[in-house]
Structure formats: structure tokens, C-alpha cells
């Protein structure tokens, strides 16, 4: 009578264990950097944030990013205000996120020195609109940290970000987004690292 119970227990342990057993493959940061750049003959627009939270899980090949849209700093105060008020509507859509996975990347490659090119595929959510994107990125294991970077274009029209006629010549249709992260190993599961403030 007791046997089925005995059999269920290891199964249960195995299931939960799947999520956490490869925790040493998890790297994260809360101070990643994302910048974007729009270049037109009339005006160059640049903005930067250092408040990107990211987690890269090499054991499952998954990765996720989240950043507060309001944390972007512009050269001009008025641009920053317009960005939040009129373009990104940051009160309505406070966060920009990405959730995806590495395509055909063997975590063991990471042990070799130097940067490695990797394809990343996933869902980019901006301004409340989600699009499937594929991005070429670079990852490198250096001094126990994972340095990750990527550069990719984002077309504002894809995310329902409307650019009024009057300024259409001074804002590029597609802005270049740069991601640069230095992720430290996360102790245990993602949730376990939270007590450090």
C-alpha cells in the first residue's frame, strides 16, 4: 500500500528539481545598461538607462530582461518628457521587457575564453506591443561574470509609437538599441537572490 507513495515522491522531487538543479548556470544583474540612438541629418537623439534587470539561465537556455521606461536619461530634458509623455506613454506602459531563449547555443562553449556570438530569439514588449524578434548577441565569461551585449534595430511603427508629421524628419524610423550587461552568478534560484538590496 505504501509503495505508490514511495514512487510518487521521487517523481515529485525530480520535477521540482528540474527547475533548480542547474542554478549555477544562472547569471543576473539589476544594473545593466541599455541605450538607444536615433540619427537623422537634423538631430541625433540618444538616451541611456543603467537600471536594466536581466537574468541569463544557461542551464535552460532562457533569458529575460526588464527595464523601467522612465529611467531613460536624455541629453535634453524636454526630449525626456516627450519620450515618456507622448511616445512611450510610460504611465500606461511603465516597463519594457524581453523574454526569450538562446538558439542552438551550448553552455559549455562559455568556458572557452573570449566573446562568443549567439542567436537570441524571443518576445520584445514595448509600449504594450509584443513582437517576436531575433537578435545576434555576444556573450563572454570573464572573471566569473557573464558579459553580454547586443545591438539591434527597433522600428517605432512596429510598436504603435506614433511620430507626428512635424518632427518626422528629426526622429529616425528605426532606432538602434544597444544592450550591455555584466551579470554575476545568481545564488540558487532567481528568487533566492532577492534579499540583497
Amino acid at each position: 500500500m505504501k509503495r505508490p507513495f514511495f514512487l510518487l515522491l521521487p517523481t515529485f522531487l525530480l520535477c521540482t528539481g528540474l527547475t533548480y538543479s542547474h542554478a549555477q548556470g544562472k547569471y543576473m544583474t539589476k544594473t545593466g545598461q541599455v541605450s538607444f540612438f536615433s540619427a537623422t541629418p537634423i538631430e541625433d537623439i540618444e538616451a541611456k538607462t543603467q537600471q536594466v534587470a536581466a537574468v541569463l539561465d544557461f542551464s535552460t537556455g532562457q533569458l529575460a530582461f526588464s527595464l523601467p521606461v522612465k529611467s531613460f536619461v536624455f541629453k535634453r530634458t524636454l526630449m525626456q518628457e516627450h519620450f515618456n509623455e507622448n511616445y512611450m506613454e510610460s504611465d500606461k506602459f511603465p516597463k519594457a521587457t524581453f523574454a526569450g531563449h538562446f538558439v542552438g547555443f551550448d553552455a559549455a562553449t562559455l568556458n572557452a575564453a573570449g566573446p562568443h556570438t549567439v542567436q537570441v530569439e524571443g518576445d520584445l514588449t514595448l509600449h504594450g506591443v509584443t513582437h517576436r524578434v531575433q537578435v545576434s548577441a555576444s556573450v563572454e565569461l570573464k572573471d566569473g561574470q557573464v558579459l553580454a551585449s547586443a545591438t539591434f534595430p527597433v522600428a517605432s511603427a512596429d510598436y504603435n509609437i506614433e511620430i507626428p508629421l512635424l518632427v518626422r524628419n528629426s526622429i529616425a524610423k528605426s532606432v538602434t538599441v544597444r544592450v550591455a550587461l555584466a551579470c554575476a552568478p545568481a545564488a540558487g534560484a532567481v528568487g533566492a537572490a532577492s534579499p540583497q538590496r
Binding site: 515529485f12 534587470a53 537574468v55 526588464s66 521587457t97 532567481v190
Partner: peptide, 24 residues
């Protein structure tokens, strides 16, 4: 059950990882 767990895992992990991150 084991198979179900293994199958469900990759499909959900992506969003789980993000929601974990957001929570944190």
C-alpha cells in the same frame, strides 16, 4: 507526470523567468 513536467518546463520557463525577474 515526469513527462508532463519535462514538457511543460521549457514552454513556461520563458515567461516564468521574466515574472520571477519582475517580482524580484
Amino acid at each position: 507526470l515526469l513527462a508532463a513536467c519535462a514538457l511543460a518546463h521549457p514552454a513556461q520557463a520563458q515567461t516564468d523567468l521574466l515574472s520571477d525577474l519582475e517580482k524580484q
